[in-house]
Nucleic acid binder design. Structure first.
Lengths: 228, 228
DNA sequence: CAACGTAATTTTTAATTCATAATTAAGTCA
DNA sequence: TGACTTAATTATGAATTAAAAATTACGTTG
C-alpha cells in the first residue's frame, strides 16, 4: 500500500514545475522567438492552464536568464547577444574544468566505457556530416563527465548556463575547419579522461569551451554585420 | 521630465521581486529556521500581501536552493548540510578563481586602492576581534574583486551560491588559528591583486575557499557529533 | 498640420475564491 | 489497550476576478 502511494508521488509533479520544462523547450527550440514578448494568454490556452502557474514558471525562467521581466510590461524572451556569450562561456569553462577534475577522481570504469562509446558514435556522426546527431551526442558526453563529477550543485549550475547557450547552438559556425578542430579536442578529452588526468582534462575542457566561444561570437558578428 | 520618469522607474519594483529579497534576508538571518516549514499565511500577514506574489517568490527561492518545494506539502527552509557544503564550496572556488583571473585583467587602480582600504579595515577588525565587522568587510572584498571581473553572469552565479553558504557563516569555526590563517591568505590575495597576477590570485582564492570549506565542515561535524 | 494632452482600451499584477490534497483527531473494532 | 479507518479540519494549488498601470487612439489646440 505504501509502495502504491509512493509510485504515485513520483509521477505527480506540480503544474508550475511542468511548465518550467515546457517553456524551456519552447525557448530553446526558438518556438518563442528571441526578443519577442511572451504571449501569456496564448500559452495558457495552449497548455490549458490559468495564468497563475504560468506566471510562477516565468519567474523561475527569469532567474535563469531565459526571459526578462519588465515590471508592468510583461515577460520578454531574451536574445543571445555577443556580450552574453562573452560572459557565459568563460563561466561555463571554469565549471566544466572543475567537472573534469572531479570526474577523474570519481568516474567508474563502466562510465568511462560509456563515454568511449558515445565518443565513437560522435565520430561516426562527424564522418556522416550529421550535425544534429553530432550536437546531441556531444552534449551527452559533456553531461556524462558532469555526472561523473558527483556534484549536484555543479550539475545544476552547468545545466542552467548550458541551457542559455543552447539557444545559440544552431548559430554555431560549424565550418569544416572548426568542426575538425572540435573533434580533435574531443579526442584529447577522451584520452585524458581514460588516463584520469584531472589537470590536463580540466585544461582541455576549458580550451574547448573557449574555442566554442570564439566560433559562436564570430558567427554572431558576421550575422550582425549582414543585418546592420 | 524624461529624467523624472526614469528615476521613478528605477525605484519601482514588482512585489514578487521585493519579496524575493525580503525572504532571502529572513532565511540568511535564520529568522526562518532551517528545516522548518515556510509559514505562508504568517508571512502574508507580516508583509501585507496575498499568497499569489509570495508563492511566485518561493518558486524563485526554490530554484536558488534556499527552500525546497514539496508538491501539495508546501515550502521548507533548506538546511546547510555537510553534503551541500562539500558540493557548493568547490564550485564557488572555481568561480572565485575565475573572478580573480578576470579581475586582474580589468581592475582599475582606483578599485585596487578601494580593496586595499577594505583590507586595512579588515585587519583592524581582526585585531579588535570584531567577528561581525570582519565577516562584513571580508564579503565586501570578495565582492569588489567579483565586480572588477566585469562579468555579470559570473557575479550572479557567485552570489546565488554565496547566499546559500551565508546561512552557515555563523557556523564558521573561527578558532584563533583558523582566523589567523584566513588573514594571511587575504594578505596574499591583496598582494597578487596589486601585482595583477591572475594565475596566482586564482590559485590563492581557490585555496582560500578550500580552507573555508574545511573549517565549516569540521564545525558541522562537531555539531552533529554533539547532537547525535 | 503637428504636437500635446486626455480618455479609452488593453495588459499586467495581485487578491480572492474555489477545489483538491494532506494531516490530524476521533471513534470503532480487534 | 492499541491500531486502523474514517471524518473533519487545515493548508495547498490553480482559476477567477478586480484593481492598477501602460499603451494606443482620438480630439483639441497652437
Amino acid at each position: 500500500m505504501a509502495q502504491t502511494t509512493n509510485s504515485q508521488a513520483i509521477t505527480r509533479t506540480s503544474l508550475h514545475h511542468e511548465l518550467v520544462g515546457r517553456l524551456q523547450t519552447l525557448i530553446i527550440n526558438a518556438d518563442l522567438e528571441p526578443g519577442s514578448k511572451v504571449p501569456e494568454k496564448l500559452l495558457c490556452d495552449q497548455f490549458g492552464v490559468s495564468r497563475t502557474p504560468l506566471r510562477e514558471a516565468l519567474k523561475v525562467l527569469a532567474s535563469d536568464g531565459l526571459v526578462r521581466l519588465e515590471p508592468n510590461r510583461g515577460a520578454w524572451v531574451t536574445r543571445v547577444t555577443i556580450e552574453e556569450v562573452e560572459e557565459v562561456f568563460p563561466v561555463l569553462g571554469a565549471l566544466e574544468a572543475l567537472s573534469g577534475e572531479l570526474a577523474c577522481q570519481n568516474i567508474t570504469d563502466a562510465e568511462i566505457d560509456a563515454v568511449r562509446d558515445l565518443h565513437a558514435q560522435m565520430i561516426q556522426s562527424y564522418k556522416e556530416r550529421d550535425l544534429d546527431a553530432y550536437f546531441s551526442i556531444n552534449q551527452k558526453i559533456h553531461r556524462a563527465i558532469l555526472l561523473a563529477a558527483r556534484n549536484g550543485t555543479l550539475t545544476s549550475s552547468c545545466q542552467a548556463l548550458s541551457l542559455r547557450m543552447q539557444r545559440a547552438r544552431y548559430l554555431a559556425n560549424m565550418t569544416q575547419g572548426r568542426w575538425q578542430d572540435a573533434v580533435q579536442e574531443h579526442e584529447r578529452i577522451l584520452e585524458f579522461l581514460i588516463a584520469r588526468d584531472g589537470p590536463n582534462l580540466a585544461r582541455t575542457l576549458m580550451g574547448h569551451m573557449n574555442s566554442k566561444r570564439l566560433s559562436v561570437v564570430r558567427w554572431l558578428q558576421s550575422e550582425g554585420a549582414m543585418k546592420g
